[in-house]
Structure formats: structure tokens, C-alpha cells
Simulated scan of single mutants.
Amino acid sequence: MTDRPTSPWSLPLPPGEEPSMPPLSVWPTGQRDPSTQLRDSGCVPGTDADTDRIPPAVAAFAIATYTRPGDLVLDPDCGAGTVLVEALRAGRHALGLTARTRWWTLARANVTAAKASGSWRDGSVLDARPKVLATARAAGLIGRVGLVLTALRTSPDAPTDLGSSPDRGPDSALAGFAATLLYCEPLLRSGGHLAVVARPLRHPDGSLADLTTPLIAAATAAGLAPVERCIALTAGLRGSRLVSRTSLTERRAAARARTAGTPTTLTAHHEVLVFQLAHDAELAAAAAAGIPWPTEDDVIRPAVNGVTYPGWRRAA
């Protein structure tokens, strides 16, 4: 994997033609069990209650791959704050948002613990819904975020057994996520990335949900282009076999499914979809194909969230 992925598609695409799925890569991020990851990262007790959290190893891998020291990492729905902890530990600035008092308290405690352990970069947690990114409070962030790294959250309390709660399944998880992507797009700096981590979800009938297609569609509508599709392992690699790291709750759910006559496999990965600003991806693809592309400062960028941003040049 390269440190700075570029778009794999030639330009321009024929009218009406959709881009193919981005290239696939595998991250060996399941070598340690979840409890060990949280302990090694210095997360405070209670962080494991956030079952929709991005595992620290996955967050650390994404941050190391898509950012440089001193970059700003944003999680617009940060939960207990594992992304913020890993950003600070890696020498990046970190900003998280959450609308849940429970997660705000844990995320603040985790940021404080990371700073106490020697992380000197700035870390903050705002008690606000993701849509605050479209308000004046975010004005100073436009064009400054190096990486937006966030999880597709199933619900505020993130139940593991989705089959018992249809209204908290994949469809409701995806419903408000498109707005979050739209609000985050203006904040990315030139060359920045947005990465969405999604654990496998099942419909009430036990079938796996297709998360990739709607997520790519939502990101494309927000002005982002997919550049990489990754499998972040949550199972350990032992030679040529995988060692499951699933929780007791997940194992019990799988056992109940087998008893009911609908056997399901235990999960071994999270899916990570990585996007860039559409213009950045187009420029990279054009450069790779030797196609001239205008970069003059007087190009006017289409309005996003009701605001027109002149020029394509972003803060480096």
C-alpha cells in the first residue's frame, strides 16, 4: 500500500458511466485482542462499552497511512474517543464531536489520559451533533483537516445483535450518514482523506447488508471520490489462518442463529472506505494519464452547504 493513494480511474469517464469499486487492500490490524489494544493505548475503563468504536489498531493504521505529523484528525461522531487517542499518540491534532453525554465524558477522559502520558498535540471534544460542522463554529476548519476518520454507527448505544432490533439496523445507520459526509467535505485540505470504518451488519433476516454501495453513493454526492477499499482485520493472522477475536456476545448470537436454522459466520474484519476530494482524485488520475488539467486559482468551486468556496487551492 502506498502512503498517498491516488485515483485508479482514467479521465474523463463516459457520460452516465459509474466508477468501478476502488482497489482492495488488507490491513493486519487484528494481531492483538480488543482488550489489549485498549490497554496498550491507555484508554480509560469503560471505553469498551462503545461497541461501535474504531479499534485502536485500525485507527492507528489509518492515521499513519493517510496523515503526516502535525495534521488535524477529525472524528465527527467520536464515541468514546479511540480515534482521538491514536491521533494524539501519533503526534497529530485531534478533534471529536459527539451528541451523547456518556461518550463525551469518556472521550474527554481518554484525551486527558493521552496528554498525561506524553502526547503534546492538541485534542478537543465538542458536545455537538455532526451538523455543527456546517455552522460558523467550523469556519476555522475549512480546508484544514488532513483526515476525517469515523465509524458508521448503528445507534447511540450500538447493540451487537441487530436482528433483535430492526429499527437499529443498517438502513437507519446509513440514513443520517450522508449529511455527515456533506458537512465534512469542505473541511478537508488539499490531499486530505476521509475514511469510513464499517463493521459487518446484518439485516433482521440474518443476511449481510451491502454497506459499500450506499456509502460510496453518499460520498460521491458529497463531492468525494473513492480511492481505496480496505479490509481491516479484527482477527489475528497465524500463518495462513485467522484467529477469531469475536466477543462472547457475538459468539452467542451466532450460536442462536445456528439453532434457529440460519447459520452465520463470525466476523473477522471491518471494511474501510477511503475517499478524497473529487478534484484531488481527478487531478491525480489526470496526472497519471498525462492529461492536462486546469489548476488556475480563478476556478470557482461549486457551492457546498450553501457556501461557495472560490478556487480549488486548499491550505496545505
Rank of each mutant, 00 (worst) to 15 (best):
M1T: 05
R4H: 12
P8A: 04
W9M: 10
L11D: 04
G16C: 13
S20C: 11
S25E: 15
S25N: 15
S25G: 15
P28K: 03
T29M: 10
R32G: 01
D33M: 06
T36N: 01
R39N: 02
R39G: 11
G42W: 15
C43E: 09
V44N: 07
D48Y: 12
A49P: 05
A49H: 13
D52R: 01
D52G: 14
I54S: 09
I54C: 03
V58R: 12
A60T: 04
A62E: 04
A64R: 15
T65K: 09
T67E: 09
G70D: 00
D71Q: 02
L72K: 05
L72Q: 00
L72E: 11
D77Q: 10
A80V: 03
L84K: 08
G91R: 07
G91S: 07
A94D: 08
L95H: 06
T98K: 00
R100S: 05
R102G: 11
R102Q: 03
W104Y: 12
A107I: 14
R108Y: 07
T112K: 14
A113H: 13
S117I: 10
S117H: 05
S119P: 07
W120P: 01
D122E: 14
V125G: 05
V125W: 10
R129F: 00
R129S: 02
K131I: 04
V132P: 02
A138V: 13
A138Y: 13
A139W: 14
G140S: 10
L147Q: 03
T150M: 14
L152I: 04
R153A: 10
D161F: 09
L162Q: 07
G163Y: 08
S164L: 10
S164T: 12
S165R: 11
S165K: 11
P166T: 00
R168L: 13
D171C: 02
S172N: 07
A175K: 14
G176L: 12
G176H: 05
F177M: 08
A179R: 15
L181E: 06
L182G: 01
C184L: 05
E185V: 07
R189D: 03
H193L: 08
H193M: 06
H193N: 09
L194W: 02
A198P: 03
P200W: 11
L201A: 11
L201W: 00
R202G: 01
D210R: 11
T213I: 12
I216S: 07
A217M: 11
T220C: 08
V227R: 12
V227T: 13
R229M: 02
C230K: 14
I231R: 13
R238L: 14
G239T: 10
G239E: 08
S244R: 12
R245L: 01
T246S: 15
S247M: 15
L248P: 08
T249K: 14
T249V: 15
A257P: 07
A257M: 10
T259G: 04
V272N: 02
L273H: 01
Q276W: 02
A278K: 08
H279S: 12
D280F: 08
L283A: 04
L283M: 12
A285R: 02
A287H: 14
A289C: 14
I291P: 10
W293T: 15
W293R: 14
E296R: 15
D297F: 11
V299R: 15
V304Y: 07
N305S: 06
T308K: 06
T308E: 07
G311Y: 06
